[in-house]
Design a protein around this nucleic acid. Structure first.
Lengths: 334, 334
DNA sequence: CTTTGTCCATAAATGCTTTCATTTTTGTTC
DNA sequence: GAACAAAAATGAAAGCATTTATGGACAAAG
């Protein structure tokens, strides 16, 4: 069943059917009704490919992330998909892994599919060496690129992120003020935002004349025993700490397990602050104090901006949200 | 830059360029090289929409699930996307929510996009009243439908699932054999597979002459405090139990929190078995004993079957995997 | 009688794939 | 080495199912 069949049965030209389909002006109410009836009767749906060819868009957005099974990224994808669908866009998901090479390939895949926009979820996309980000700039030549939790100053690239630096700085400050002075920062070495948080932590510690202690974990985001093991090793080496700021909730959870393994009391013997305020924060007992980085709001803002770009060709280039410390059981009252 | 431009610059017809592009036979090596050089020089990529129109496919699979931020579903999507991409397919993600109406709408969206196949992730798609599943059968008229963790006997519908019934039955048996007799089954009422597991639990209990105690939670998959609260309420009402089988790891985690809240020792005062063997199993201390339902293998089998269907028009209609009990700290040695 | 505006049809354009026909090459035979 | 057949390489053109620019018919208004 094509538009031609419909036009025949309705006794009009295909152009008229197309106009009815697209809600264009200059179709008499009578004709419109007649066409709609035929469309309804034969359950006709326009061919998406032909439509795409004619309009040069299939209203699709490419969502790319390193690993969509990461709890936090999965949540972001969930929000984005819903919001984009509400705006009449489909989402093509593409997991790139963490390697530069595979990322480049993934991005090319999406471009070949002729998506209307690309969303890079997770700041792991941003490298410190500028020239490594070139593939992103290349993509931006063709289609708008939105960075969720990353920032890159380039034409047609839009950044929406949370002020990780300040959030962690403040959280550290509050922990120090509450009387804890030997605070460890625990992060995943392959994460760009983990490093930005690191600087926030460092700054807070140094401003109070305290020596920062930074421990990085070098493994997958799922390797909790590895994370816990890392901390246990520290302890074996005589490293003692009564506070821990983690770059994400998974690392924080590992810290909680570490404490429980050693029989330490939380928060008295060890206070823990996580990051993301994800569902993981509620998975342990006591529940995790965590920094909420407003993921849903970030996503909403990203979608809104993208829609602006796609229509007006205008959108706010960089937006930064601030994080909130959500207090739960792993910290004393801060 | 179109195929026409390339043909001109290479001094051949567009048909030849197309043949080179598609690796068709009967192109002389010399011509092929010349065309490839031009393609390379101008970084030409064929227009995906035109290609779609000509071939009547854009090599896309629609993945539909209720809520992609659900840890378990997210993992499934992750596996599927990777495997499909390896087979040269893109994935369109569509979260349908839990309502019949929105599911139907989501499925229609995917069909309109002319995907080559549809994967329904999570057994929530299957209703007990047959006629509610009609929208799935309708979709199967147009495109193959793969059910991950659901089963429906219909033309062009393929089911891949884990034997939830037997897995839970065996786990229950083992807990009973280990000497625990007051075992609770804790499930989410909106889950179809939760009910299949329920029957496995019931059967095991009854075979040992024990009275099944079933508690269902009616809320979202994220409401851990709600789940814990549900159990605490039982306790307040004098309900005592020393074993708990949960329909998924999140519910099991809630049970662990319940125990920790009350100061019960795990596994001595309460033994807990979860389901899915997800990352959540490693998020608590002690770690969760859980039933592994072979998600990655299920996904791989699903992808393989789909590829078969898409090529040969032949594939195994129904496959059932068996689950494995993974023992960790929340149970005594079973 | 011309202008303006509404409604609609014709036809071109979108950029590919593929069939079919044609040309070129290769191989065989005498 | 010419003649012919078979095979390989190529091109022309017809799809594929839309959108949209152009222009024509008609009615109302000036």
């Amino acid at each position: 069943m094509t538009i031609y069949d419909i036009s025949e049965k309705a006794g009009v030209s295909i152009a008229t059917v197309s106009r009815v389909l697209n809600g264009s002006a200059n179709v008499s109410e009578e004709t419109r009704q007649r066409v709609l009836e035929v469309i309804d009767k034969y359950e006709y749906t326009p061919n998406a490919f032909a439509r795409g060819l004619g309009l040069n868009t299939m209203r699709t957005i490419g969502i790319m992330c390193a690993d969509s099974s990461d709890l936090y990224l999965a949540k972001a994808i969930y929000y984005l998909e819903r919001q984009l669908r509400e705006n009449g866009y489909h989402c093509i998901l593409c997991c790139s892994g963490y390697e530069l090479k595979t990322r480049r390939e993934s991005l090319e895949l999406l471009l070949q599919q002729k998506v209307d926009g690309i969303i890079l979820v997770g700041s792991n996309y941003i490298y410190e060496q500028e020239e490594q980000n070139k593939y992103i700039l290349d993509a931006a030549l063709t289609t708008p690129v939105m960075l969720l939790n990353g920032s890159l100053d380039a034409p047609n690239v839009y950044s929406i992120l949370c002020d990780d630096y300040t959030s962690v700085q403040e959280a550290t400050n509050r922990m120090i003020t509450s009387g804890i002075r030997d605070i460890l920062y625990f992060y995943n070495s392959n994460s760009y935002s983990g490093k930005k948080k690191l600087y926030g932590y460092r700054n807070a510690m140094e401003e109070h004349g305290l020596k920062p202690t930074e421990v990085f974990f070098n493994g997958t985001h799922e390797d909790i025993s590895g994370m816990t093991g890392q901390l246990l090793k520290l302890r074996e080496n005589g490293q003692v700490f009564h506070g821990l700021i983690a770059a994400d909730d998974m690392l924080a959870l590992a810290a909680v397990k570490y404490a429980l393994t050693l029989g330490l009391r939380i928060p008295d013997d060890l206070a823990v602050i996580g990051y993301n305020n994800s569902i993981l924060a509620q998975c342990c007992y006591p529940e995790l104090t965590s920094i909420d980085n407003k993921l849903e709001a970030l996503c909403q803002h990203l979608t809104d901006t993208l829609m602006d770009v796609l229509t007006d060709n205008y959108g706010i280039k960089n937006t930064m949200f601030s994080g909130d410390l959500i207090q739960r059981g792993t910290t004393p009252k801060l």
